Amino acid sequence: MRVNSMKDHIVFYKETQQGPYPGMGGSTEVFKSWAEIYEPSTKDFQIGSLETSKVNITVIIRNAYPEFVPNVNNTFVVETGMYQGIKFNIKSVSPKDANTIKVVGTQWE
């Protein structure tokens, strides 16, 4: 289990659209979790079609199914560590093993 390496705190948000124009919506907090954060691998860059000009990270969280399953319509903010305060779009979600989920994100514009 990767619990000992989950040292950063992240918050997941659901982006809501409340008007006819982009950016008129808001964010609703849906889940908080401890996470392990590291740089994406070459495979993560290929799967998520990540841009090298932006900040990209891979996050490992505990599997909280059915309470919460992240999807590409969500965003997350890292609240601790080197990426503190940066908002990320989710590019891909995949199971890491029976107890964890891998989330790849790129910096929100």
Rank of each mutant, 00 (worst) to 15 (best):
N63S: 09
V104K: 10
I86S: 10
M82I: 08
N89W: 15
K14F: 09
W34N: 15
I61N: 07
Y38K: 15
I10M: 07
V72D: 13
G48L: 09
S49F: 03
P22Q: 12
V3R: 11
V55Y: 09
N73E: 13
R62L: 15
Q107T: 01
E29P: 06
S53A: 06
D97S: 06
Y83V: 00
E51D: 12
K14V: 07
I10P: 01
W108K: 08
E15S: 07
V77G: 02
I60K: 09
N56S: 09
K102N: 08
W108T: 02
G25Y: 02
M24F: 03
P40I: 07
K7W: 11
W34A: 07
T52M: 08
G19E: 14
I61C: 07
S49L: 13
R2I: 15
V59I: 10
G105K: 00
E67M: 14
K43Y: 12
G25N: 04
T16K: 03
P66D: 06
E79Y: 09
Q46G: 04
Y13T: 05
M1P: 04
V69A: 09
I90F: 00
K32N: 11
T16I: 14
V78A: 00
P20F: 15
G81F: 11
P22A: 15
N63P: 06
H9W: 15
N63K: 13
G85D: 12
G48C: 13
M6D: 11
Q84L: 08
V3K: 13
Y13A: 01
M6C: 13
K87R: 11
Y83R: 01
V69C: 04
D8K: 09
A64G: 10
G19H: 04
T16D: 08
N71Q: 06
Y38Q: 14
T58W: 02
G105D: 05
Q18R: 02
Y13I: 11
D8N: 12
S41R: 00
I37M: 14
Y21D: 13
E109V: 11
F31Y: 10
N56T: 05
T106M: 13
N74Q: 07
S27H: 05
K91L: 05
F31Q: 06
D97K: 04
S53L: 03
S41N: 09
Q46S: 03
I57G: 09
V72A: 14
I37S: 03
S92F: 14
A64V: 13
Q17Y: 00
K32H: 14
P70C: 11
S49H: 15
E36C: 02
